[in-house]
Amino acid sequence: MKYVIPFLIILALTSCKSKEEQLKESILPVLTNAIIQDSLVHKIDSIKILKIDTLTDSLYAERRLLNKSKLFDYYLSRSKMYQTQAELDGRSAKLSQQQSTLYYEYLNSSTLGSMSADDAKSKIASLKENLDKSTVYIDSAKKVNAEMQRIENDLKIRKNKPKGFRGFLVTFNLLGTDKKNMEIKKDTMLLYLSPALRVLPINKI
């Protein structure tokens, strides 16, 4: 009888450990496939799963909000970049138009005048193109901002509600190489999985 209780304790500990190990073993091929699909590395040398956390509805929403915030900042910065380029094109077009007038009216040079006029047209076309690109990114930023508002409202609603089980949040380290066989090391990366161990495309929702 004295051997039965220690045996049961060891059996219980082994059972708990095996469940965690079984979950890691089940997640590893899903994780490997996700890394390949996203082209994070050309060749995988090693994957180390650091921890597996429970992904609640609230945590999932918070992570989505964080990703949307980064996407919003990206769209905004791209819009400003094209806006700045459009302003430079406008100044350059104005200068070319002034030069064209100078060549035609004061220097009586139709060749130089025509070249400056063509340059002005080119800059005006570039200005319009950059303004269009800026508008596209602004529109995208507005859409993301609206999505962020919906997520924030959802978080407020869920604040005093029980935390639902959304899946798993896997934290891992990755070591691999690129196509030139250069080492790539990515630390503390995250993968979001459903209860059925399907990848949750958190950036696309």
Rank of each mutant, 00 (worst) to 15 (best):
G90D: 10
K80E: 12
A125E: 12
L102K: 08
K133D: 08
N173I: 03
D119K: 15
Y137W: 03
K143D: 10
E105T: 07
A146I: 03
N181K: 12
D118H: 12
D118R: 13
L174Y: 04
Q83I: 01
L131V: 06
S116Q: 04
G167I: 01
L174H: 03
K80I: 08
D178Y: 04
G167M: 03
N67P: 00
D187T: 05
D187H: 05
V144R: 00
M148K: 02
F72V: 00
A146V: 02
E129T: 07
I124K: 13
K68F: 14
K68P: 00
D118M: 12
F72K: 11
E105R: 11
N108A: 09
L175F: 06
K94S: 12
Q149H: 06
T171A: 07
K186W: 06
A86D: 08
M148I: 05
K133A: 11
S114Y: 08
E147G: 00
Y137L: 01
M81T: 04
S116N: 05
S116A: 14
P162R: 10
D187C: 02
I138K: 14
K159M: 11
N67L: 15
T84N: 15
Q97A: 15
L131C: 03
L169H: 09
K70R: 14
G90L: 13
A86E: 08
L175Y: 07
L175W: 08
K48T: 08
S140T: 02
S100T: 02
L88P: 00
G113E: 03
N67S: 09
A93T: 03
G167W: 03
L107R: 10
S96F: 09
I52D: 04
N181M: 10
